[in-house]
Design a binder for these strands. Structure first.
Length: 329
DNA sequence: CATCGATGTTGAG
DNA sequence: TCAACCTCGATGG
């Protein structure tokens, strides 16, 4: 489920909490036992996020590549050092350095600092109920009990990161990591924006493929998923079926520049906020509820926020596509 | 309790 | 084009 913004947020958490600290790695589920054995005793040295993929380097010259796919998520627990550059949507950002309680039990779902990736609303709720029953803080387990299917657990003295449900979790050599990165389209937070714009333009122009599919193609541009795709097309008032080669160059450039704007907002807020020009009350509502956050995504049959026409839902390349047939005619 | 669906990608046919 | 992958919260009976 995570689009590019989530991966950059996760990378920042690893940079803050794991880089420079020796880890113990394990695969409670067993499906990454070999990789965990290789990582144990090593120290993360740096982290890269490109599009929807994260690369964590360990000494020496071992890279962990993780792609969360549609189900994956990282759960963090322990004395989480919050990254000062990212905010928590529910305002608990300021409560740093606490084990368990606030950060872990944050129930903000996709916005939670404790769980980034697929929404994990109930996880926090479950533990909340235990706490409500009077769970003594001293009895909190460390390391935390494994819950569910954990592919990879990375443990430092103070932090625990559990990876579950990834599409990809593998070790790479430096060359393999570089080859993977080279296969990906430009990412506004990795590439120089001007250079990225040219790369995007070169990959999208002259293509017979619908722009709605090109935006989802990670070789064309990195990090855009189904939500940002639909929203960016609406913001550009562009028909999703327009072949890339028929999209005017200045419109293609504006699509890239819109991604340059939207991605950092997503990284900073933890939400795919794609509406702008809102008054204070509308903005508050949009940040509070996903139903009020988007122009067209998940709004099938509802009136377009601009023209009132019913939002269309159709399948494009086996993914749900939402758009306004009037605004995006 | 069973079934469905999701912010994704790969590879077979 | 479509099934498979993989996890779990939401939904419905």
């Amino acid at each position: 489920m995570p689009e590019g913004h989530s991966v950059h947020r996760i990378a920042r958490q690893f940079d803050r909490n794991f880089v420079g600290r020796v880890v113990t790695a394990s695969s409670p589920q067993g499906r990454f036992a070999g990789g965990a054995a290789v990582l144990t005793g090593r120290t993360p040295t740096r982290v890269r996020a490109v599009g929807k993929q994260m690369f964590l380097e360990f000494d020496s010259d071992v890279w962990l590549r993780v792609h969360l796919g549609i189900y994956g998520a990282w759960d963090f627990a322990g004395e989480i050092l919050l990254d000062p550059t990212i905010a928590s949507a529910n305002g608990r950002m300021g409560q740093t350095g606490q084990r368990g309680t606030d950060a872990v039990f944050d129930d903000a779902g996709e916005n939670s600092l404790a769980s980034i990736g697929a929404p994990r609303r109930a996880r926090g709720a479950v533990r909340m109920s235990e706490q409500t029953r009077g769970l003594d803080e001293d009895l909190e387990e460390w390391p935390p009990a494994v819950v569910g299917q954990v592919r990879l657990r990375l443990l430092t003295e103070t932090m625990c990161a559990d990876l579950r449900g990834p599409t990809a979790c593998q070790l790479q050599t430096p060359d393999e990591m570089l080859a993977t990165v080279a296969s990906l389209g430009p990412d506004p937070l990795v590439d120089d924006p001007a250079a990225g714009e040219e790369r995007f333009l070169a990959a999208a122009r002259r293509k017979p493929t619908a722009i709605g599919q090109l935006l989802m193609d990670q070789k064309v541009v990195s990090g855009i998923g189904n939500v940002y795709r639909a929203e960016m097309l609406f913001r550009a008032r562009l028909n999703p079926h327009t072949p890339g080669r028929e999209v005017p160059e200045d419109v293609l450039r504006s699509l890239w520049r819109d991604w340059v704007v939207l991605l950092p907002i997503g990284v900073d807020t933890g939400q795919m906020m794609t509406m702008d020009g809102l008054d204070a009350e509308s903005y508050r509502r949009a940040m509070a509820s996903r139903d009020d956050r988007h122009w067209v995504y998940r709004r099938a049959g509802l009136p377009c926020r601009v023209c009132g026409t019913a939002i269309v839902l159709e399948e494009m390349a086996a993914r749900k596509l939402y758009w306004c047939p009037r605004c995006q005619a």
